[in-house]
Design a protein around this nucleic acid. Sequence first.
DNA 1: CTGAAAGCGCTAACAA
DNA 2: TTGTTAGCGCTTTCAG
Lengths: 341, 341
Amino acid sequence: MVTGKAGGRSRVTAVDVAREAGVSISAVSRVFTPGASASSKMRAKVLAVSERLDYMPNAMARSLMTNRTHLIGIIMANFKNPVYLSILDSFTHAIQQRGLRSLLFNVSRGDDLEASARQIMEYSIDGMIVSAASMSPLLSDQCRRRGIPLVVFARHPRNVKANVVTADNVAGGRLAARLLIERGYRRMAYVGGPETVSTSLDRGSGFDQALAEAGLDRVRRVNATDYGYDEGYEAVSRLLNGGDRPEAVFCANDIMAMAALDAARYDFGLRVPEDFAVIGFDDIPFAATKPYRLTTIRQPMDAMVRQSIDVLTDQISAPDVSPVTRILPCSVIERDTVRSS
Amino acid sequence: MVTGKAGGRSRVTAVDVAREAGVSISAVSRVFTPGASASSKMRAKVLAVSERLDYMPNAMARSLMTNRTHLIGIIMANFKNPVYLSILDSFTHAIQQRGLRSLLFNVSRGDDLEASARQIMEYSIDGMIVSAASMSPLLSDQCRRRGIPLVVFARHPRNVKANVVTADNVAGGRLAARLLIERGYRRMAYVGGPETVSTSLDRGSGFDQALAEAGLDRVRRVNATDYGYDEGYEAVSRLLNGGDRPEAVFCANDIMAMAALDAARYDFGLRVPEDFAVIGFDDIPFAATKPYRLTTIRQPMDAMVRQSIDVLTDQISAPDVSPVTRILPCSVIERDTVRSS
DNA sequence: CTGAAAGCGCTAACAA
DNA sequence: TTGTTAGCGCTTTCAG
């Protein structure tokens, strides 16, 4: 029984290391603090003992003094759409690259956004990223009051005072419309997501604008009840069953576009792109597979993620700056669901 | 300038609330501690002031005393496979349900698992879930030494002393083989993932076993370099190009099975399931879409997640128990890529 | 460059 | 039930 405290509950602390190395605990602290001064002898001795004792500074205790937790809160919904896996991949990667950690909150199952935000704030995170459909002013207020930099990702909520990093969804919608017009389609429809989501709204209005500019009218518009495959399938079926069938549809995301393609081909016997064109949004990996080869509008996800983290880290080191808005351009990815000339 | 400290850096603390409410700080503490005793008057008064001042206990300071952070570390790789989005969805949801928080670590980009584990441990998390291909004994040692309950999810590493919750991959492989045999296929092949991954190994060996029991030999076996669509496509192409073409393939996951289906149909002109059968593993949502209608082996993901969290929470409250292993059964999901009788 | 001492915000005995 | 007191493990002035 030579081991320290019993029960495995307690860890080795800086005091243990200091005692064992015959130095003060401040010395230990300095060795583990990046910008601090310590002689190389000191450093070597402390590091050796730490290694032997398997010492590791306690982040909680540290943050109590420094007021930095190195924690970035991520509030996310949409755990059904594969784009969000890529987004999460990029975010966690970027966050880790900078020596930060991700505290992930799932608000997709009707969990209250406010409540989650409150919980997350108990950890006094250094920054927060929100990528959920609903974005409340109360949340951004909370963050501002507490001095926590906040970026709203891939969403452009009105009356919320926060940093915003998003794709230019309106321009993306226009891109879709112009491609379709150029390729000779005339009777177009839009398949949006839930009516309140800003991305769906923006993509739809850009689409309508460009149509109007060309003297065209959008034939119809349907809204899926959720941003998923089944909901998209249902919405498109409604669209194709109704009279005044369109020659082309622009869908608010790739999942719904894939559903549109399937419904058109399998249930209505339409040939794509000859009889019917489909454009999606996002460019998820599956959109490129053989059965789909979906023509789509791509958001510059990696750039968006990078900018978000940049904005966040900038504001963590220099607080009290006014919110920034970064809107990044989309691009057309041509594949085989729109005819080629 | 009536506000407290300047700069927005500092938050309102229990001291502020205590002063304002004319009580002691322990009183404040008690009001925010679930099992503590406080008169309803006290509680009301403190709560009112807290509300007004927007007070919230500091989780870091709290954890310093309690030795509980309510943080669960999740180490994940495979940010390319959509199953993991569902898994993450279930995990974060289950974790939040129990008043815990998720600290997510991405080790998919060649980031060192050890290094990540060390970082994550600085936060003295209450428990840890690892769902990454590689699982080192060093990591489980670290956890045991620090008394941190660990569950290895959907993987069954050898010589690692930790809790394991996984599907019965061997039995799953057998299920696939028996279905194929029953439906009259004879010349079968296996498309595995990277050679070292236990899931791929187990599924393959279960498949081989059941084949052998029926007096059959697996015709061939190819391994994809990674668990993705493109890698699967490449592997299957190799398989179908080689001589001795199989009548059926069992793929280690749905993504590769989808790739197999696409390669077979589009590049080799095979009719499925007449000329060629494909079975996948996982039952991801896309496997059910019209172009695929993939017959597959389903892992009971929700149950696996639930069990993982159960094991974790049990061991958090009652440490020093020996590791448990839970192996859950898979089931066959029949769709259209294996002929029906 | 190094050590002593004073907290960071909170909880947990212990008295009252 | 409530207040007082002593830390949790660490960083950070401030002397030396």
